[in-house]
Design a protein around this nucleic acid. Sequence first.
DNA 1: GCAATAGTGTCTTTTAGACATTATGTG
DNA 2: CACATAATGTCTAAAAGACACTATTGC
Lengths: 253, 253
Amino acid sequence: MYQIEDYERPSVAADAVVFGIDTEPTASSKGLQQRKLKLLLVRRGEEPFLHMFSLPGGFLRKNETIQQAAWRELREEAGVNSPHILPLDVYSAPGRDPRGWIVSCAFLALTRTVVLATDALSDAVDAQWFEFDFQTLSSHEEQLTLSASSISITLRYQDGKLSEGGLAFDHGQIIYDAFQKLRDEVMHHDLIFELMPSLFAVSDLQQPYEIITGTHTSPQNFRKKMLTKIEETELFNEAAAHRTAKLYRKKQQ
Amino acid sequence: MYQIEDYERPSVAADAVVFGIDTEPTASSKGLQQRKLKLLLVRRGEEPFLHMFSLPGGFLRKNETIQQAAWRELREEAGVNSPHILPLDVYSAPGRDPRGWIVSCAFLALTRTVVLATDALSDAVDAQWFEFDFQTLSSHEEQLTLSASSISITLRYQDGKLSEGGLAFDHGQIIYDAFQKLRDEVMHHDLIFELMPSLFAVSDLQQPYEIITGTHTSPQNFRKKMLTKIEETELFNEAAAHRTAKLYRKKQQ
DNA sequence: GCAATAGTGTCTTTTAGACATTATGTG
DNA sequence: CACATAATGTCTAAAAGACACTATTGC
């Protein structure tokens, strides 16, 4: 029988790539209401990569699943509470962590409410939402800019591989992979509804959808496309300006 | 600084759910040429679950990635050589392995050639391709039958969760999750081409596609649909019966 | 010729996009 | 009233499916 004591074992970590969108649109200079895609990062409080930004995450403990570990760290480090998470990949290249043999299980999450990162609750403290701006420079080059109030981080990719960037560990690569999966899940599946309350107006669905996928359609056509996935209710969105909108819910399929 | 020696660590394993399709159709009773979807399983040679079937897999070693570990085990246990693998999920429920704290990173693979599992090369020896027959019984119940020459294993699922079945560990659940992802990858992406040689006839593409997705289209319409993803060459499939078919290749996009 | 597969074309249905039009709210 | 958003409808283009028809091979 296999004796697990006979072999050296790695440390196992869970890291989460958490995307979010503000519930309230932030007014831009021209008065347009604009929502932005955000990414949750935490400032490291210890070596290695002291003071640099990294994905929220931490080590797996006994008697919990790796998903529970991801949730626990999100709660502790950023006050984000049990979002829907999807498996992304396992990062295990030798040397990826200077502390030793550490395997990271990465997860993708999209959360509805922009839970303000509490700055004083527990260990990591320095959790922040960064504005996420992904740009295709050419067919082989892409650039990601992460901006918060006082800091801006730029990452570059060539053929989908990180070529330069200032995040801890291999987190720049993990974020790239996560964004590809995010777009895929929103376009081909129903991940976008993780951002929605149980009842919502069609226009509240469209903005996040297009911000994430990088597409644009007219409100009329977007409505038609979504009617295969949502159904109308008898309720109305009273609090809005202009004409009141019917509220919809996701179809159970 | 975090000292990895201070904490207990799990063993980490890689398990692979490898699907395959015979290159040669097997003649059925009515003379129809029929190809079947197959799944690679190995008979366990030690406790726990001695003599039961499980997914090929094994433990992560130092100085390799978890993907390399999956490839190494596939080569050692079944003679399958470095197929294209996709991350599936991480299985880490406490108690999932009676030997102790063991986390399994599961991968999905689809291989072109049905490499005959060599029965005498190395440790696991007893690798076998099982015919994979997935059936939806009702909206909540599904059944999977795995059949090889001398053995048949039936697994049942309720709402996507394993309810009964005779595989080692939680491998019955991993296989379910893998099959969902397989269908998704074949329908929405290009995983089907992992089964194809660099040049192939359209009809050689259709059979595997429909076996995996559970769909059916006429050969004419299938051709039209695929012409967005493949391009014709000047070569012909000489060895076939009946009219010779033009050979196609996957478009580089 | 016949059976079987390869390949083209035609018609229909479905889905997506462009865009006109009407409805209903605020200021 | 102007103006913004909500909702419906109309036309068009693209994709998917049904199916008729021709082409080429082996027997």
